[in-house]
């Protein structure tokens, strides 16, 4: 499951939990797409404390979405990922 909400004028929170599937990514595109068209700077927080997994088709769809908006991601000046997984830190680094 995936939920997107604004927690401030310039901060968007994405919460991942359980297994993220292709439909979740469609929802992410719908919710986050318009925010990527804004003027920055904005902050993005990804909460993944209860995230278990992502399906292969969802992973591919998410990558396509990221690449399609590549020029717009810089609207987010800061991105925080909340997770106890050390692997997430390594990926960010």
């Amino acid at each position: 499951m995936l939920r997107v909400r604004e927690i401030g004028a310039d901060v968007v929170e994405v919460t991942l939990s359980g297994v993220v599937d292709r439909a979740d990514i469609a929802g992410l595109e719908q919710a986050l797409g318009p925010k990527l068209e804004r003027e920055g700077p904005m902050g993005l927080i990804v909460r993944a404390e209860d995230w278990a997994d992502i399906t292969a088709d969802a992973l591919a769809a998410e990558a396509r979405f990221e690449l399609s908006k590549l020029a717009r991601w810089s609207v987010f000046a800061r991105m925080a990922v909340v997770s106890d997984l050390q692997a997430i830190g390594a990926i960010l680094a």
Partner: peptide, 21 residues
């Protein structure tokens, strides 16, 4: 984009950090 990982116990700190733009 500046990126950081926070432990679950630091969730409020993460929110403060991304809000400090």
């Amino acid at each position: 984009i500046e990126m950081r990982r926070f432990d679950a116990a630091q969730a409020s700190e993460a929110e403060a950090w991304v809000s400090d733009l």
